[in-house]
């Protein structure tokens, strides 16, 4: 028996009215439900099972998984490769596209390839500079930037054209996302930049780690004043910090991450720092979910992926909902036979 929202791998769900993609993430967000997404870090391996194992950890707790594209300018399995594996068994990944490693010819090709495999969500990023990663000797491409990338994919989808103006016979029906960092200067320009991203085609936004709630509230209030909150779904980013030392290292070494001193002192003062980091993460999710205009949460739990399920459960944001995962409905069916 197949339930109404159970996908058959390789077959697309119908596109609902007013939607741009067939994806579940767009369906959840447009239905007004609180969405949860998480970061799926790619393996340094050619073994598909490693991707499936990493994805399975989030089963039943997330509406989408970000397949990262060389995040931090480090080399891993490609985003397209991960998406190919994930869509095979019905997962709905968010394919990240960074402008650092590929030019407009390669990127547009990947967009078509991704959409053909069943990728319904794409997140447009500029990407970290090559100096941040393990191959600082590499040539950085940056032919497009996040904004022109959004424009490009929107043009492919809505006009059915490549950047060159050449026709695309079946356009990629994707839900377009972008990143935002309300915590990096110039703070007063950030809401305007969000407006630019929306103008360029962004439909949902995932932010960088959000530890500074007052700053985020201010960003959201300014965005509301600009009338942006009705036009976009915003999913602030959160994540557990393993210890005060990790948090300090991340603050000093990872571009664009702002962690206030209060967070570090709180972690340093705790007996079990890892546990405290997770507790703080739950609290942040609860606080952020109360803010007007927040449509969901994006969890980045690098090397603590196994803690995500617990964090989401404790925060209560899913309100009893179980997002689809391969095998969810068969499991329910078996349970109903037993009873």
């Amino acid at each position: 028996m197949i339930f109404h929202d159970e996908p058959t791998p390789g077959e697309m769900l119908p596109i609902l009215e007013g939607h741009t993609s067939a994806g579940r993430l767009e369906r959840v967000l447009r239905a007004g439900l609180f969405a949860v997404t998480s970061e799926l870090s790619p393996p340094d391996s050619a073994d598909p099972q490693e991707v499936y194992d990493r994805a399975q950890i989030f089963d039943g707790f997330v509406d989408g998984m970000n397949a990262t594209d060389g995040s931090g300018a480090n080399c891993h399995m490609s985003s397209v490769g991960m998406c190919a594996l994930l869509t095979r068994i019905g997962y709905a990944p968010i394919m990240q596209i960074s402008c650092r490693d590929r030019n407009r010819i390669a990127i547009q090709g990947d967009v078509l390839g991704g959409a053909a495999m069943g990728v319904t969500n794409m997140l447009c990023l500029t990407g970290d500079g090559v100096q941040a990663g393990d191959h600082p000797q590499a040539k950085a491409v940056f032919d497009l930037d996040c904004m022109s990338l959004l424009e490009t994919i929107r043009g492919m989808r809505d006009k059915g054209e490549f950047l060159s103006g050449r026709r695309i016979s079946t356009p990629p029906k994707v839900f377009l996302g972008a990143a935002s960092n309300p915590f990096a200067p110039p703070h007063d320009f950030r809401p305007y930049r969000l407006a630019k991203k929306i103008a360029a085609g962004a439909q949902f936004i995932q932010t960088n780690y959000c530890f500074d709630v007052p700053r985020f509230k201010e960003f959201m209030a300014r965005s509301r004043d600009l009338g942006l909150l009705e036009k976009v779904f915003i999913l602030p980013g959160v994540g557990p910090m393993a210890s005060a030392k990790t948090a300090t290292w991340i603050r000093n070494n990872v571009p664009g991450i702002h962690i206030p001193d209060t967070v570090i002192t709180r972690l340093a003062g705790a007996k079990d720092q890892k546990r405290e980091g997770q507790k703080l993460c739950v609290e942040l999710i609860q606080q952020l979910s109360e803010i007007e205009g927040v449509s969901g949460i994006h969890v980045m739990a690098y090397r603590q992926e196994e803690a995500v399920a617990d964090i989401i459960k404790c925060s209560g944001v899913l309100q009893g909902r179980t997002p689809w995962y391969p095998g969810r409905d068969q499991q329910r069916l078996q349970e109903s036979y037993k009873t």
Binding site: T126, D145, S148, N181, A184, P185, P186
Partner: peptide
Amino acid sequence: IRNGPCGGV
């Protein structure tokens, strides 16, 4: 970046 500033500032 023609549409900056990026989030890495």
